[in-house]
Amino acid sequence: MTKLSVNINKIATLRNARGGEFPSVTEAAIKLQEFGAQGITIHPRPDERHITRKDVYDLKPLVKTEFNIEGNPHRDFIDMVLNVKPEQVTLVPDADDAITSNAGWNCKKHQDFLKEIISEFKNAGIRTSVFLDPNPEMVEFAAKTGTDRIELYTEAYAKDYADSSTSLRMTKELAIKPYFETAQKCVDFNLGVNAGHDLSLENLKYFADEIPNLLEVSIGHALISEALYMGLENTVQAYLKRLAKW
């Protein structure tokens, strides 16, 4: 079964809008794990507009499932991750002022840079994943960095899947095709496959059913938004049902 890791950045965004400690990101992490989430993901950014450095350290002893820290590998980020030692670090090439992640790595261009950083994490016993666009040709270069996994950047899939219900030119099969091909290439290079960005209750099941060797999905914005109407526990359970293999 594909693991569900819940990104709690949006909880921190809501808290920071008013200051103080409510809603609590630590309580959210505890509750999400009680409700069935198999991991907690955070993406701290330099401006601390949602997850703060304090949150990172506060969460470490509370995550009993899998702690996944995402971010652009600036030196401060690298040192923090090495100090905290999460189970997984996901490297994302987002600009400091980006609203959200918006592209995967060019592993051919940045191969030496990534290889050096990944070796630091692996020497510390931290599993590594690199954010990747759906491009089979990039998988070979990702493998050469020494990464353990790739995380498929799924925004285009989510958009095309939504368009498939109204467009004569787009189908679910076309939406998933580059992702399937990229994941299949990862199997050839013995790379694990994670995925995330704009996956939701609407589009997750088809994606999880079609993608080979899908080990983990990281979902935040949609899950927290849907929880406003369904409740957090019900929403987590609904996601787990979408991921179940019957």
Rank of each mutant, 00 (worst) to 15 (best):
P212I: 12
K115R: 15
R53I: 10
T41R: 02
T128V: 13
P178Y: 13
S119D: 13
T13G: 08
Q33C: 11
G104H: 00
E66I: 11
R169Q: 14
S167C: 03
K245L: 13
N106S: 13
A103Q: 14
L214N: 00
E87R: 06
F207C: 03
Y229K: 11
A37Y: 00
N106P: 09
S101D: 01
K109A: 15
H50Q: 12
V81C: 04
R45S: 08
S5P: 00
A28G: 07
I126W: 02
A183N: 04
A142D: 08
A142H: 03
D148A: 04
K115L: 09
T128K: 05
T128L: 12
N83D: 12
F141W: 13
L62V: 12
D133K: 01
E21K: 13
K115C: 09
E216P: 00
P46Q: 07
S129E: 08
I30G: 04
I30A: 01
I117V: 10
A158R: 04
D94L: 07
L82S: 04
F35L: 10
N194R: 01
K205H: 15
T128I: 14
F207K: 01
V25T: 11
L32S: 08
K205D: 11
M230T: 11
T154C: 15
P46A: 08
V89K: 07
F22M: 12
N72E: 11
D96R: 05
D55A: 06
D163F: 12
A195T: 01
A17R: 11
L4R: 04
Y206N: 02
I78P: 05
K159E: 14
N194V: 04
A103H: 15
L168K: 13
L223V: 08
E48L: 06
N123R: 10
P134E: 02
E202C: 08
S101C: 03
T154Q: 07
E137H: 13
F180V: 15
D163S: 14
A124I: 10
A156T: 09
A222S: 14
N83K: 07
L14W: 07
K241P: 14
R49W: 00
L168P: 11
V187R: 08
V84G: 02
A208M: 03
P23G: 09
N123I: 08
K85S: 09
T41K: 03
K144F: 01
K85M: 05
R18A: 09
K108E: 15
G71Q: 02
T235V: 04
L114T: 07
A158T: 01
L201N: 10
L228A: 10
E21R: 12
T2Y: 05
A175P: 00
P212C: 08
L201P: 05
K60N: 09
E137D: 15
I118K: 03
R127L: 13
I224R: 03
N9R: 03
V81Q: 04
L62C: 10
L240N: 13
E202M: 07
A244H: 15
Q237C: 09
A175Q: 02
I211V: 06
L191S: 12
H50R: 10
Q237R: 15
K115G: 08
V25W: 00
N102L: 10
N190P: 01
H110A: 14
A29S: 13
K144T: 10
E34R: 04
E210I: 06
K60R: 15
E70N: 09
I176W: 01
A17H: 09
N135L: 12
